[in-house]
Nucleic acid binder design. Structure first.
Length: 299
DNA sequence: CGCCAGGTTAGAG
DNA sequence: CTCTAACATGGC
């Protein structure tokens, strides 16, 4: 059972795949050759999907081929899978206006040519976005992936298929019950432990729901998220960019953005947050994508 | 060894 | 309102 999800011309499967391949410790998807496998739960039923680029079809069929490996799926589930994949790779955003806007830009002009078709690979689940952002606060990415690997192995759900284990992120009801005694041994700091559980509680008690936030403007959604202890401006904007794809979300405090600008401008020092905000005014409406391409420029 | 890392908070001035 | 220490430890 397989079908194709159409993708626009401004989409590069390879570039998005390179993002997904950036850590060997990532458990939430797995590559087999050039195919990505990911475990999903449709109405609590585990469905293992495999995606690959649809290359050798007619241009109208250009896109991503989806296959369900462990089960057959009905029409409704097929529609859900298509929706998931369209969201995951942000296929519904038209990048042409962004490319036109920055084609002659000093910082982004070359980057958007070099990485044409690169899109924000998202995290369709808001809770997962937030926890992952907290894990990445103030530490290097390699270590953040180590923490996430331990966290998912211990508290997530797993599913075995053809001798391989596939994992899904733990739900808020599980995370809300965790304690320092369980998280500190994974080398969470007390702070990360507290923030992670706070987020779990906010979602488990439905103080925050993905559905309620999905209809809000960026500022309202950001302010709602920032009421959770541990979620600051960087974390909120990161999650909103990855989950809801607000094109104007951007984590201005991000050290990756700062380093990228410093390197591209061959400057000795990193810009301040205020300087970044000023610089980003010319990307208005496309801050999330400006951020993505700056990240991509980093070594 | 030293510096930095996909930040946030509480508390002081 | 702005500034700072504390958080904690891996990676290079």
């Amino acid at each position: 059972m397989e079908f194709v999800v159409a993708a626009p011309l401004e989409f590069s499967f390879d570039l998005c795949a390179s993002f997904l391949k950036r850590s060997p410790r990532e458990l939430l998807h797995r590559f087999e050759n050039d195919r990505v496998r990911k475990l999903l739960h449709l109405k609590d039923r585990p469905v293992l999907i495999e995606l690959c680029e649809s290359k050798d079809l007619s241009p109208a069929q250009r896109g991503i081929t989806i296959r369900a490996l462990n089960t057959t799926i009905n029409t409704e589930e097929r529609a859900q899978l298509e929706k998931y994949v369209r969201e995951w790779f942000d296929l519904d955003t038209d990048l042409k206006p962004f490319y036109e806007k920055v084609s002659a830009d000093k910082l982004l002009g070359e980057l958007v040519t070099k990485f044409h078709g690169y899109r924000i690979v998202g995290q369709p689940d808001l809770f997962e976005s937030l926890v992952w952002a907290v894990l990445g606060q103030q530490i290097n990415l390699a270590f953040a992936y180590t923490l996430k690997q331990r966290f998912v192995e211990q508290f997530g759900t797993s599913y075995e298929f053809e001798g391989q284990h596939y994992y899904a992120f733990p739900g808020p009801e599980v995370v809300a019950q965790l304690t320092d005694a369980e998280l500190l041994p994974l080398q969470f700091s007390r702070q990360k432990s507290k923030y992670t559980v706070e987020i779990g509680k906010a979602f488990a008690e439905k103080v925050i729901t993905q559905e309620a936030l999905s209809s809000m403007p960026l500022e309202a959604a950001r302010d709602t998220l920032m009421q959770i202890k541990g979620v600051g401006n960087w974390t909120a904007n990161y999650a909103l960019m990855k989950t809801f794809r607000y094109k104007d979300a951007f984590p201005a405090e991000d050290v990756g953005i700062h380093n990228s600008i410093r390197l591209l401008k061959k400057s000795k020092r990193k810009p301040t947050v205020e300087e970044v905000r000023k610089l980003f005014k010319k990307y208005k409406g496309w801050e999330a994508y400006a951020t993505l391409y700056l990240w991509k420029s980093l070594p």
